[in-house]
Design a protein around this nucleic acid. Structure first.
Length: 492
RNA sequence: AGCGGUAUCGUCUAGUGGUUAGGACGGGAGAUUCUCAUUCUCCAAACAGGGGUUCAAUUCCCCUUACCGCCGCCA
């Protein structure tokens, strides 16, 4: 049996979309599972919509996700080049082959003429199929048109190919995920394979590239199903081996529309910027349509690859639930080794002067603030009170917590006692517990006691472990802030 | 409009011709903790509708409905 070869073929008209990432993942998994090759091909036949920035983004995103390719534009391979715009010289000869064998013909129709045909179809409430007006143009007619300066596009002759290779007009193929799929090719219409400017169209370039790159399995979104029939016919007309196809359900936004920016991040790089971990992203996206046989949802790509069977993928669409992704992300953050986390958090801490903290203090800070993180970026708002001598007190906290009579009694007592405390974590833990106990005797709940201290020192009523905070801030800063929170009249 | 696809808790899904239809996220309740969070325990929540086939249908078939996709010299 020949080597399994699959590919992901993004078009660089935007940053790598999360949906493309999922398609790439399933291809990657399929390759891994079958000991095959995973190939990256850039489909940039439409020069207007392409940019180098997007190409770089695709590379970086795929790499970040751990979806490394065996052959591609940057690493090369035996069937390169892997960028379509660099392959423009190889398509014409296949177009010519089709022209010679009568499976394609020149079409001189202008955009206006085509537009008119479409309009007529809509008015008649009929599906639009190209009229085949140019199918039987004589040489003289063509020369005449050419003399007028019209440049022909090349169209593929669907019905001719269908008749040549199939008994009826119904074309059938066995989809890897959806099972048997049928289509009446009469409804397809002769489509353009080469634009009048000489560039190949998508449907043509894909076939040539897939054939030449010896792709054995084409796994892609179900929006390509109707293209598949066209492509199969081209493979056949060219005498090339037809690969197997598998079509994945689409990813939809929570409102069942197409996932777009207004729903949140859509590009992998945007998710990363927002503080999602690529491990979480890939794990989450794998669960859209696929489910592990042991029910354990947290899985690395390698683990998934072992368990992966393409025919078990759900063929329905699935909704992208940001909540579950967030849960998964928080889980992956919890699993991160502290050193790795310290590094990954730094970009989100740029507004603070990290040099104020020793490495030991920074480590401690991360340790006590990591728990509630859902996104790495959450850290930004969770740590301001670790920096600077003074702290910013939230107005709401000032009035509802700090200004209360209880707080104003607790704080002076705290300052007085804490002055004599040995400022070590262990000791603080003990002393603070005693302190709470004393106030509890006076009828103040432990959490109220702590609220006073926490509010004075962090400006908030919730946050990280108090002992940890005091340890990091040190005695001077802690007591300075505590004293400052005491109102003039109640100062000792 | 036509053609194609899909249909199990709100969401992602498991599962079966006879099950108390399972798990996860989210939601609710409680416990723990100095707060938030975490963690733990418990609870609510689904086989789209209608016909068949069958002793029996969520499971197989058909229809309806809903949703998605495709009908470009975009990819």
């Amino acid at each position: 049996m020949s080597e399994t070869r699959v590919r992901i073929a993004p078009s660089p008209s935007g940053n790598l979309h999360i949906g493309t990432a999922r398609t790439a993942l399933f291809n990657y998994l399929f390759a891994k599972k079958n000991n095959g090759k995973f190939i990256l091909r850039i489909e940039d036949t439409d020069a207007d919509r392409t940019s180098q920035e997007y190409i770089d983004n695709i590379f970086d995103s795929l790499k970040a996700l751990g979806l490394n390719w065996d052959e591609g534009p940057d690493v090369g391979g035996p069937y390169g080049p892997y960028t379509q715009s660099e392959r423009f010289d190889i398509y014409p000869k296949y177009v010519q082959k089709l022209l010679d064998s009568g499976f394609a013909y020149e079409c001189f129709c202008t955009p206006e003429e085509l537009e008119q045909e479409k309009q007529q179809a809509t008015e008649a409430k009929k599906p639009y199929v190209y009229s085949k007006k140019c199918e039987n143009l004589t040489k003289e007619e063509k020369d005449e048109l050419r003399a007028q300066g019209r440049k022909p596009a090349i169209r593929f002759n669907i019905s001719k190919a269908q008749k040549a290779f199939h008994d009826s007009s119904i074309l059938t193929f066995n989809d890897l995920v959806k099972g048997e799929l049928h289509m009446d090719t009469n409804l397809l219409g002769d489509f353009v394979i080469q634009k009048s400017n000489g560039a190949p169209t998508y449907n043509f370039a894909v076939v040539i590239d897939d054939a030449l790159m010896k792709i054995t399995h084409v796994i892609r979104g179900e929006d390509h199903i109707s293209n598949t029939y066209k492509q199969i016919l081209i493979f056949e007309a060219l005498g090339m081996e037809v690969p197997q196809f598998g079509h994945l359900g689409m990813i939809l936004a929570p409102d069942r529309s197409k996932l777009s920016k207004r729903h949140g991040a859509t590009a992998v790089s945007d998710f990363v910027k927002e503080g999602y971990l690529t491990e979480a992203l890939i794990n989450f996206v794998a669960l859209l349509g696929w489910s592990p046989s042991d029910g354990e949802e947290i899985k690395s790509v390698d683990e998934i690859a072992k368990d992966f069977r393409i025919n078990e993928i759900s063929s329905s669409n699935s909704i992208f639930e940001y909540d579950k992704l967030k849960w998964m992300n928080s889980h992956y953050i919890k699993m991160l080794p502290i050193d790795k986390l310290k590094e990954m958090l730094k970009p989100y801490l740029s507004q603070y002067n990290l040099s104020e903290l020793t490495d030991e203090q920074y480590t401690k800070m991360v340790e006590i603030t990591r728990e509630p993180l859902t996104l790495l970026s959450d850290i930004t708002n969770d740590v301001p009170y670790f920096f600077g001598k003074d702290v910013c007190i939230e107005p709401e906290v000032q009035t509802s917590t700090l200004d209360t009579e209880i707080s104003q009694s607790v704080l002076p007592d705290f300052v007085e006692k804490a002055q004599n405390w040995e400022w070590t974590e262990e000791n603080l833990h003990e002393k603070l517990a005693d302190f709470r106990a004393e106030w509890k005797e006076k009828g103040v709940k432990p959490k109220v006691t702590m609220w006073a201290i926490r509010a004075a020192i962090t400006g908030r009523t919730c946050g990280a472990d108090m002992v940890g905070i005091l340890t990091i801030l040190g005695k001077d800063t802690s007591l300075y802030r505590a004293k400052k929170a005491i109102k003039q009249e109640s100062k000792i």
